[in-house]
């Protein structure tokens, strides 16, 4: 007999614990809206644990990511966090880069060395992102103590300042992001991050977000919003192509989006109350958890890897909710005090 907490999925033919789907949707909505990424690396293992066959887990994941990225992008857009011009320019580089990355994978497949190479490059890249994020924080802290504070506060790594000196035409002004640079800079950066994403078989938000901050020079909040815009476009196309291949469980997408809609609003509004470095550090911790889980998987500790991922997702989610609710409460208190 079916209990109230299970739901029959007509396409994949499995009974699923639906509150689990709502919870996954909520968590990833929260984290995606806050960090500006799709979060496929969190959702796919979660869906698989709930009982979805892997083929359906990937497609369903992409459809859900498309829906929740729309919600987050619209909300970020109202905050002025999306630079559409930058997003559109970057899509060109990303698409071509991913194609080249995928070709490299096929070449390595022919050589028969694909598995370990991809995994260790992934681990190396995540380690690099972690080191960069934490070193940046350390440097910014040092500058703050020394009184070296700019327009938006102290900044650690400023590689983008050097890259902005490249004046190859056409020069483009990105009004929302607030800088002018050669159009080739975002194209080349998105091209390189695209190659890596294609090579590693991931959506790319995990690499693109720090690249937008450190190499292109976007303020953290705008990097988050602009990255989500890219995730939304690729996610919608992904929904169509995976749907046509029969890999999407449409009911699961509905249920997950219910949770994701609330999570995406909380995650996005939380960025209003978080400082750029708060977002960067939490992002660094998420990347660290992802890296350790891959190492664990590499050595056969699959359960530990899953526990680590879900534990990290849960903790970061609680942290984001805390930022949002405490920030909103403070704002309301201040409004009330001002009106009296």
């Amino acid at each position: 007999m079916l209990e109230w907490y299970t739901m029959y999925m007509p396409i994949s033919g499995v009974d699923i614990f639906w509150p689990g789907l709502v919870l996954i949707g909520f968590s990833v909505g929260c984290i995606g809206g806050f960090f500006g990424m799709g979060g496929a690396w969190m959702v796919t293992p979660g869906l698989n644990i709930l009982g979805f066959p892997m083929a359906f887990a990937i497609g369903t994941d992409i459809a859900h990511i498309a829906g929740k990225s729309m919600i987050s992008t619209f909300r970020h857009s109202k905050f002025g966090n999306v630079d559409y011009k930058l997003g559109c320019i970057m899509i060109i580089g990303t698409v071509i880069g991913i194609e080249i990355g995928a070709q490299v994978v096929m070449w390595l497949e022919r050589l028969g060395t694909i598995g370990p190479v991809v995994r260790w490059v992934y681990v190396g890249l995540l380690a690099l992102i972690c080191i960069m994020v934490f070193y940046d924080y350390y440097k910014a802290n040092k500058k703050k103590k020394a009184g070296d504070v700019g327009e938006h506060g102290a900044e650690g790594i400023t590689w983008y300042k050097t890259l902005h000196r490249i004046k190859i035409p056409p020069m483009v002004h990105f009004k929302t992001a607030g800088f002018t640079c050669s159009a080739w800079l975002p194209i080349m950066v998105s091209f390189l991050t695209g190659i890596l994403a294609g090579f590693l078989g991931i959506g790319g938000g995990l690499i693109r977000m720090p690249a937008l901050v450190y190499l292109i020079g976007c303020p953290t909040h705008i990097a988050v919003g602009t990255d989500l815009f890219e995730v939304m476009i690729s996610g919608l196309y992904g929904t169509f192509t995976y749907g046509a291949k029969g890999r999407i469980e449409i009911y699961a997408v509905f249920v997950m989006l219910m949770g994701a809609a609330i999570g995406a609003q909380i995650g996005t509004v939380a960025t209003k109350y978080a400082k750029g470095y708060g977002i960067r550090i939490a992002f660094g911790l998420a990347v660290l958890a992802c890296m350790v889980s891959i190492i664990l998987k590499q050595y056969g500790f699959n359960t530990s890897a899953t526990v680590l991922i879900l534990g990290a997702v849960g903790s970061i989610c609680v942290y984001i909710c805390w930022i949002m609710f405490s920030g909103a409460a403070k704002e309301l208190r201040e409004k009330k005090a001002a009106s009296h």
Partner: peptide, 24 residues
Amino acid sequence: PLWFGLEVTIITALMGVTLGLITD
């Protein structure tokens, strides 16, 4: 399958917009 893919895409986009407006 092609029609199913199109349906899923449209419904996902519509759900995204509708839920976005409601939660907004």
